[in-house]
Design a protein around this nucleic acid. Structure first.
Length: 437
DNA sequence: ACCAATGATTCGGC
DNA sequence: GCCGAATCATTGGT
């Protein structure tokens, strides 16, 4: 507080020595007696400088006297101007900072997480975000899983808003207070409206930096919450039996080309999550992951999967025979979009099927689709043949569930070359697993 | 507690 | 953008 008089002193000194505006102001006050004016100003300054040394009453009286002095407005302006210039030169660089990128990021994130957005029914934005994260999978488990999350999120939201409001209020209060104080003080100190404005700006910046801290910690809280509740890795749930069966059936019936199309994946995902109240984050993604893992793990240790393969082969075979005998429209266990191969699935035309595979598996989308379906039938067929003891000598026993689909390089065999079916050679890791009967 | 199974993620390659 | 491979992190059985 006692810095101000010193500041004024030095400024006044500088101003007196070289400020060009001073003479203007002085002229503005009228009179031509330069020496007299200088003397006058010298007196005033002297009074200002010594004002702190006086008693309170004396100082009050002096202050009043100074306030009433005819030179006061001019001097005040000069001092303001000088101060303005000095302050500007000191703080000039810090002014006009661009909108903070960090703050914008935080804002965006809070908005995306539904913390700072408009509140719609207990933070449905958050629910939407959660739903988006879960790929729209709205199973029973899903909502149950997320209700806790939502509760916690809305708790965070509430805290955030309360705090924000508090800050806002405190900021306003403080601003008003400071403004009043400065206005009050501007009667005795050279404080220009501009400076008050700047001070308000400083206050706001300070408060917004506090706000940023709040936002940051809120973001952190949300992230922690998210990772706790929504992180798929943490919240991994094994597919249930039915889902695994569906996927396995598809896998083993498309073993020569176990790469489900986007549609097939969707279909499988739907199938799986209908029977399974899956908590998977993204159903189709889950299917992709499943196939990715399956392919790689199957390939890595074919022997281990032999039994499973046979099992599903048998199952598929049963399905296939049921289909052909009942004329049901379901053919492949998981490809209901198959084109026209239903019902007419029997052993005698397997050769034709291969022909179909080779001829249909062209470049056109439809051809590829159809080819895949036929291939699926073929895959199934192999199992039917080997499991049932064989309708055809040429395809029995030795062609049990060997990894025909995998070529020497470890990649999956092209669907258009089902040579392994008739080839006597066995793939690596092949096991004669017709031990079931 | 240990361990295999398993779903998800990451990373490099194409 | 998908795939394979490696890896992570959790689940579930023992």
């Amino acid at each position: 507080m006692d810095e101000q008089p010193r500041l004024m002193h030095s400024h006044a000194g500088v101003g007196m020595a070289g400020h060009p505006g001073l003479s203007q102001h002085m002229e503005g006050t009228g009179g031509t007696d330069g020496d007299g004016r200088k003397q006058d100003i010298g007196d005033i300054l002297q009074q200002i400088m010594t004002i702190t040394d006086q008693s309170l009453d004396e100082a009050q009286a002096r202050k009043h006297a100074l306030n009433c002095h005819r030179m006061k407005p001019a001097l005040f302006n000069v001092l303001c101007e000088i101060k303005e210039k000095t302050v500007l030169s000191i703080r000039g660089a810090q002014e006009e900072e661009p909108p903070d990128a960090q703050l914008m990021r935080l804002d965006n994130m809070l908005l995306a997480e539904g913390v700072s957005g408009p509140e719609k029914g207990g933070g449905s934005a958050a629910a939407a975000a959660a739903a988006a994260a879960s790929g729209g999978g709205a199973g029973a488990d899903n909502s149950a899983e997320h209700s806790d999350y939502r509760a916690k999120l809305s708790q965070i939201r509430q805290i955030y808003h309360t705090e924000l409001e508090k800050y806002e209020q405190a900021c306003n209060e403080f601003t008003t207070h400071v403004m009043n104080l400065l206005r009050e003080q501007s009667r005795t100190r050279p404080i220009s409206p501009k400076e008050i404005e700047r001070m308000v700006g400083i206050i706001h910046r300070k408060f917004s930096s506090i706000q940023m801290q709040l936002k940051q910690s809120t973001c952190e809280a949300v992230m922690i919450l998210r990772s706790r509740f929504l992180d798929a890795r943490r919240k991994r749930r094994n597919f249930n039996k039915q889902a695994t069966e569906i996927l396995n059936e598809y896998f083993y019936s498309h073993l020569s080309n176990p790469y489900p199309s986007e549609e097939a994946k969707e279909e499988l995902a739907k199938k799986c999550s209908i029977t399974v109240s899956q908590v998977q984050q993204r159903r189709a993604m889950g299917v992709s992951n499943w196939f990715g893992n399956k392919r790689i793990r199957y390939k890595k240790n074919i022997g281990k999967f032999q039994e499973e393969a046979n099992m599903y082969a048998a199952k598929t075979a049963v399905n296939a025979t049921n289909v052909s005998s009942h004329g049901s429209q379901a053919n492949s266990p998981s490809t209901p979009n198959s084109a026209g191969s239903a019902g007419s699935f029997n052993m005698s035309n397997s050769g034709d099927l291969f022909m179909s595979v080779q001829s249909l598996n062209g470049d056109s989308y439809q051809g590829a689709q159809l080819g895949a379906n036929v291939q699926s039938q073929v895959d199934t067929l192999r199992h039917v043949i080997s499991q049932t003891g064989g309708y055809s000598e040429g395809l029995t026993a030795s062609q049990m569930y060997s990894p025909q689909g995998i070529n020497a390089n470890g990649g999956w065999q092209d669907a258009t070359t089902p040579s392994s079916v008739t080839s006597p050679t066995e793939g690596p890791g092949s096991v004669h697993s017709d031990t079931s009967n």
